Amino acid sequence: MHPRPRHLPHDQPPRPGPPRGRSRVTLKRELAVAESLALEAGELLRGHRAHKVEVGHKEDGEIVTAADLESDALIRAGLAIAFPGDAIYSEEAADSPARLACSRVWIIDPLDATSDFVAGGDQYVVSIGLAIDRAPVLGVVYRPEREQLFSGHRDRGVTLNGRPVRATGARKLDHARIAMSAKESKRGPLELPPTVVVRRMRSMAHKLARVAAGLDDGAISLKARREWGTCAGVALVLAGGGRATLLDGSDIAFNQPVPRLPLGMVAAGAALHPALLMAVG
């Protein structure tokens, strides 16, 4: 039996408004499958934390663990059984150009923030996103150590552990809560007011999920991120009534030939997004 996500006494998000929409798309089964797989993968990852975590390295020098690979195999197998006609694009599996011809592509990071996982932190997440015709339409992000399950799609809105949530309506950067990595200030100038509350977060998927749920007002990355760590989070931000764009203000398209996005990104509630984009531009 999967662990039941619990509500935490802190980080209470605002009450949601109705989802904004395009034409309705029925993704109820897709969301249920993704949620179940994220919970199962999270349980697997917690199990690995009970033992010493052995660290290896990929060809590009990034670290990888057995937990990454087992979580990846679990999620890909589950998606392949449930949706055999869909393509799957994962950080931990060989890429295939055949996905570029597919309308529906699952884009997953089975363990986002592996360094945090290895260090014994609690910010690592499982990220499962679905892009249809290159648009991010569905996202599930699960934070196992806090049992926080963020999920939603563009015509359903977003929930956190089953409770409807939404991006905040903040309009000014003064006192806004902005999630970013500890390295952002070294990557370029940030014209943020001194009263901004900076949340230091490891996982990009987690930062985006927090924006979608109204736990933070915005998130930034001056670094160009890869698709598998952003698809689910961007889908959640959009489903929660927020905006997520590249640093030039353009929409983010997924299932591209190159896995890394062309620029860094900004995500926030719709009212705050223009100001945050200007502050990092």
Rank of each mutant, 00 (worst) to 15 (best):
H2V: 10
L8S: 09
P9C: 13
P14V: 12
R15Q: 12
R22D: 03
K28F: 09
A32R: 13
V33A: 08
A34I: 10
E35K: 14
E35F: 03
L39P: 00
E40D: 14
E43M: 09
R46G: 05
R49Q: 11
R49L: 14
K52M: 11
E54T: 03
G56C: 07
H57T: 07
K58M: 07
E59Y: 09
D60N: 08
L69N: 09
D72Q: 15
L79I: 07
Y89M: 08
E92T: 04
A93Q: 10
D95Y: 03
D95S: 15
D95M: 13
D95Q: 13
L100A: 03
I107N: 04
P110A: 13
L111T: 00
A113Y: 06
A113C: 04
D122L: 08
D133Q: 11
R134I: 11
G139S: 05
V140E: 14
Y142H: 13
L149F: 02
G152C: 02
R154A: 10
D155V: 03
V158K: 03
L160Q: 11
T168C: 01
G169D: 02
G169S: 09
R171H: 12
K172A: 15
H175N: 15
I178N: 08
K183V: 10
S185Q: 14
E191C: 12
T195A: 14
R199D: 13
R199H: 11
M201N: 11
S221V: 01
L222T: 00
K223M: 11
R225T: 04
R225A: 14
R226Y: 12
W228K: 06
T230P: 00
T230M: 14
T230N: 01
L238Y: 04
A239C: 09
A239R: 08
G240K: 15
G241H: 01
G241E: 00
G242R: 07
T245V: 10
L246H: 06
G249V: 01
D251Y: 00
M265D: 04
V266E: 02
G269S: 03
A270Y: 03
A270Q: 14
H273A: 09
P274D: 07
L277Y: 12
M278F: 13
V280I: 07
V280G: 06
